[in-house]
Simulated scan of single mutants.
Amino acid sequence: MGRLLGGVLTAAGVILWYYGGTSGTTALVNLGIGTIILGLVAAVLPLGGQVGREVLPLTCGPSCDFFETLRRDLELEGNPVIVPPYENLPKGAVFLPKSSEFSPHLGRFGEGTVFVAGSERESGVLISPPAGWGIVEYTIENVGELAGTGLGYASSAVSSVLSALGLGSAEVFEKEDGRIEVFVRPLCDGPVYADPVSSAVLLAVAMGTGELLKVSSVERGSEHVKIVLERLGGIEKWL
């Protein structure tokens, strides 16, 4: 059943992608890409025996609360920074700077490192792998590599996987000033970087763009959150 559904979605995606390309309709092209990816995921995803989405917050809620307590207790004043995978951190990371005037030194980061020591501007707490790494890894295994694929493809890929897993979806937009807006439905009410769904989308976006991203603001609605990201440049800039 999964292969049949996946085949139908993939075929529909190809049609939408082709028609959008020939007619110059960008919205149809993006919709076609998303549908193709969703079809590929559905073809390999078992459709039975899944846990209901409403149960999942019970499992991740306490960890989200813990990270908020940790940040407050250690007086980490800087905005969270999403770090895409690179040699020192093959699974990426979330960096919580000590100071609001931060300047992360990626050469000090590494697997197994939690507290990053240095000057006031370089110090902070490193969370690696991020809470959403499992979802991103699943996306890579079933859809393909995300690194360097661009904002549109990477966000469509992880959104399609979230949809196939029954975890909702995400919408990502790039504004004229270069900022990135992410709309996603998280599993817990804690920090977005500690939520598996939200952090998966943020990490996928960082991988697609190949840049560090600062979480500038978070606005919570009734079910979804709006996350505004600021580009900080590529890995080489901060080594």
Rank of each mutant, 00 (worst) to 15 (best):
G2A: 12
G6V: 10
V8L: 14
L9F: 13
L9V: 01
A11P: 00
V14H: 01
V14Y: 01
W17C: 07
Y19I: 15
G24C: 11
A27N: 07
T35N: 05
L40V: 08
V41N: 00
A42H: 04
L45P: 05
P46E: 13
L47W: 05
G48S: 14
R53C: 00
V55G: 00
T59P: 00
C60Q: 11
C60I: 14
S63T: 13
C64K: 01
D65L: 14
R71Y: 03
R72K: 13
E77G: 12
I82W: 02
P84E: 02
A93T: 08
K98M: 05
K98V: 02
F102K: 00
F109P: 04
G112I: 01
G112A: 02
V116P: 05
R121N: 09
R121E: 15
V125Q: 06
L126C: 05
I127V: 14
I140N: 05
V143Y: 02
V143H: 04
G144Q: 03
G144F: 04
E145L: 10
S163T: 14
G166I: 15
K175R: 14
I180H: 09
D195I: 05
P196Y: 14
S198V: 05
A200L: 06
L202C: 11
L203R: 02
V205N: 03
M207P: 11
V218I: 14
H224T: 06
H224V: 08
V225S: 07
V225L: 08
I227R: 04
E236S: 13
E236F: 04
